[in-house]
């Protein structure tokens, strides 16, 4: 048990600095570590935890709390969450404390602009990995694309969209069965 907790901290701690432009950028690497390297969860468990995390309120990155919970119960949830949030939280705290000295500095703009394409690449990696993890074949993948298209065109509430996805699959399953 202790070993698992240590491994969780060792996996999620470094990932903390990879969460640029939001937590989704770390999903591809989280998947690789949790499913492929450590075999803590299988593809289905992983993608289902992702779905639950998108249905829940709050920061989407609490996804890792859920993964930690499934891997090692309450201690797992605490360790995974702390490991992912604490390192960058301390960094932000440091900047908040010394901010007045660096107001409007060029390097902050450079940092924001420079990290943007990396964040974009990492989000695409997350999408790629999640699409591969989906079971339900091409119907599920097709639904993911439709869902993205709906989000681009409308201001639909994401919860409604996810529930509609669940409903559509229930109907699809009943009709085919």
């Amino acid at each position: 048990m202790k070993d698992v907790l240590w491994d969780l901290a060792a996996v999620f701690g470094p990932l903390s600095f990879g969460t640029i432009g939001g937590g989704s950028s770390a999903i591809a690497d989280i998947h690789y570590q949790v499913v492929e390297v450590h075999s803590w969860l299988d593809e289905t468990q992983f993608v289902e935890a992702f779905a639950v995390s998108r249905l829940a309120p709050g920061p989407g990155s609490l996804f890792v709390a859920l993964l930690g919970w499934e891997i090692a119960g309450l201690p797992g949830a605490l360790v995974a969450t702390l490991a992912l949030f604490l390192p960058t939280a301390l960094m932000m705290y440091g900047v908040a404390a010394i901010w007045s000295r660096y107001r409007g500095a060029t390097f902050l703009n450079a940092m924001e602009l420079g990290l943007r394409p990396i964040a974009a690449g990492l989000i695409l990696a997350a999408v790629f990995v999640l699409l591969q993890s989906l079971n339900g074949g091409w119907a599920a993948r097709g639904l993911a694309f439709v869902s993205a298209a709906v989000l681009m065109r409308t201001r639909i509430n994401p919860i409604l969209l996810i529930l509609s996805g669940a409903g559509l699959f229930l109907i699809y399953d009943t009709v085919l069965a």
Partner: peptide, 24 residues
């Protein structure tokens, strides 16, 4: 079955974000 559908629709969220970021 419902969770598979929910997961598929949920993948649309990062996909939307990814497309937006690429466009910007």
């Amino acid at each position: 079955v419902a969770l598979v559908g929910a997961a598929a629709a949920a993948v649309g969220l990062p996909m939307h974000l990814g497309v937006t970021m690429v466009l910007h």
